[in-house]
């Protein structure tokens, strides 16, 4: 409530400010710098204004990548959040199985991202992978390296496998913090299981779920490693999400200007959507 005011406290913040400046602001400024100039190499730059931004925003390629990105993000959110909550609800609240469940849940999160990509790539190969072979044996014509639909299916399956645990752990933390008295009161009030979920568990999980959705939203926008190992954006451009496209332009074609402009747009989209989302959730909270 009452804080002691002492300006010397700012000294403690200085190292962080320096660190952030060094690893975030300076690189970001470089990108901003590139995004408004044209270069032909040899460190010769020309002022380009907002040209690159216009070009990027108008290009069909960018629009397609953005659409794919949004599709991907909302699909995985729609699957991972309800699934994560559902799993958290079925986990034991106390007893010897709690640590076992928690470790099992945490496992996918501990695997390096490139390994996840490689694992799923091999797992899904139609000729030798367990998943690919089994699906084909069951009569499905499955080949994620050739058919866009299959590539999407595999990509989403991989992301769900990899990241649902995060939602589970957060939701679980929210659930175990609910005192027993709430459940007893609900029992006494004759509440059906769904009412318990709707009026006790969900409201108490809201805070952590907001964080879960926000994290998953931002992370899914930034997905790169697993995706590039699994499909590399193919077949064709069918799984080329924003990040893959960006790298293709920046490194593949060495179009620094458009790539920088695209990076900034990319960054601003994430920032904007996160902010909108967070504000909505918090406003809801205050009512």
């Amino acid at each position: 409530m009452n804080k002691t005011h002492d300006n010397r406290a700012w000294l403690f913040v200085l190292p962080v400010v320096a660190l952030v400046a060094f690893n975030a602001i300076i690189p970001l400024m470089t990108v901003v710098n590139y995004s408004v100039q044209e270069t032909f190499g040899d460190n010769v730059f020309f002022w380009a204004g907002v040209m690159w931004f216009e070009q990027v925003l108008q290009s069909e390629r960018f629009q397609d990548a953005l659409l794919r990105q949004l599709t991907f993000t909302f699909t995985i959110l729609l699957i991972e959040v309800p699934l994560g909550v559902a799993i958290a609800l079925t986990m034991p609240k106390k007893g010897p199985w709690v640590p076992v469940c928690l470790v099992l849940m945490a496992l996918p999160l501990l695997i390096p991202w490139n390994v996840v990509g490689a694992m799923w790539n091999i797992f899904a190969l139609p000729d030798i992978g367990l998943l690919g072979r089994s699906l084909n044996a069951l009569g499905f014509d499955y080949n994620f390296t050739r058919q866009p639909g299959d590539a999407w299916f595999t990509l989403i399956l991989m992301d769900v496998w990899h990241w649902t645990s995060l939602v589970v752990l957060l939701a679980y933390a929210g659930l175990v913090s609910i005192p027993d008295a709430y459940y007893q009161a609900a029992k006494i009030d004759g509440a059906k299981p769904f009412a318990v979920f709707r009026y006790i568990q969900l409201p108490k999980m809201k805070r952590v779920l907001t964080i879960a959705v926000l994290l998953r939203f931002m992370d899914s926008f930034m997905i790169y490693t697993e995706l590039s190992v699994l499909t590399g954006g193919g077949p064709g451009n069918s799984t080329t999400l924003l990040s893959i496209d960006l790298v293709k332009i920046a490194l593949g074609q060495f179009d620094l200007g458009p790539a920088a402009a695209m990076s900034l747009i990319y960054f601003l989209i994430i920032l904007l959507l996160s902010w909108v989302f967070y504000t909505l959730m918090m406003r809801n909270e205050q009512q």
Binding site: A181, A185, Y199, P203
Partner: peptide
């Protein structure tokens, strides 16, 4: 039952 710590449906 009325519990030691108040139980209400917050929402």
């Amino acid at each position: 039952q009325v519990f030691q710590f108040p139980v209400v449906y917050d929402t």
